[in-house]
Amino acid sequence: MSTLNIVRRSLLASCAFLLVASLHAQERFITVASTTSTEQSGLFAHLLPAFEKAAGIKVRVVALGTGQALDMARRGDADVVFVHDKAAEEKFIAEGYGVKRQEVMYNDFVVIGPKADPAKATGKDILDGLRRIEAAKAPFVSRGDKSGTHAAELRYWKAAGIDLAAKKGDWYRDTGSGMGPALNTAASMNAYILADRGTWLNFKNRGELGIVVEGDKQLFNQYGVILVNPVRHAHVKQADGQKFIDWLVTTDGQKAIADYKIGGEQLFFPNATK
């Protein structure tokens, strides 16, 4: 009956694993719903060990688009949200899901495009750049995933006076994907795309792409952090979540954010109001 023994042993091993996994779950931690830009730019990998060391609280980051991250928090599946879409964040608080929004830092968006720049969009003016892309019907990749970046892109098109609903054509590719996958798509199509600088700097599969538009003040991208409302979801780890938020906006956290660089270039600029 050796197979029975194997089954017994496997069962034991499996139980042991689930036990270890559940013990693991007993460690002190908070769950943060955040965006792909903070995770994929490598900021969290740089930032979190410092906080975990200082506070003894592990931070578990689930990286999604801003819209999804806020939805996840609405369902009570996160203690803290750390995202970048001011309008959506304020709506989240108005609905009673969040306690208070605190600004932490900003980075900026850049328009990425083919180095050859067939639309002649190169410059400092985001609205002018978008108009040229549309006029040339040059391929443009949109996130199309209700993320903060997607929301920003839609705002810029509107501000540029371009009615996407009417002008959308073959040139405008709605991919419904995260920042990285959208960049992969743009690289393979040699298309223009709006991206956050952090993800772009950390992105390896660039193909023929480079930065086309940067430095416009309108491209600044503000990040906010919000504690999920314990009144709405009683299990929210209020104290530990607040500790993380407090750390982010104090000197230590702000300095850690400023210290994160890729190739000597600073990605995020702390601007918490104390």
């Binding site: 694993f17 996994a21 693991h24 369902r75 599946d77």
Partner: peptide
């Protein structure tokens, strides 16, 4: 999910 029927066990985002 916390908002789901088994939410009270806090199993989401765990290996379990």
């Amino acid at each position: 999910s916390r908002a789901g029927p088994l939410g009270q066990f806090g199993l989401l985002f765990t290996p379990t």
